[in-house]
Amino acid sequence: MESVILKTATRLMVGLILIFSFYLLLRGHHEPGGGFAAALVAGTAFALFVIAEGPAKVRTAIRLRPTTIAMLGLATAVAAGSAALLSGQSFLTGMWWGPGEELLIGTPLIFDIGVFLAVLGAILAVLLTLEDN
């Protein structure tokens, strides 16, 4: 679709939506949000991008192939789950590190990032292939 208005708006919107999606991903543990919802928001950003600029530009912009992103997501989730194995606990047990109760980094967050990447990769894969045709 050739539309100057859409293209200009897209340029502004995509970045904003992606930042919002990142915000959703990080706040998910305490407030509504999380990896799955964040991936869906990011998916809409890319859908906008695809409609305005076509699939070829999106492919160059994301550099990695969508299926690679999805596989990276699965690998991240598995790695996050395997961290517990190292300390002798069962697979996917949550592990936490940090100075205090209000600032903690834990494997569930990494797992959520894996979910985000896997779902986003899947959405991108289907979206781009549909638009290729």
Partner: peptide
Amino acid sequence: QAHGRNIVNVILVD
């Protein structure tokens, strides 16, 4: 146990 206030998300990721 899971250091999260959003129960839905804690269920999903932990």
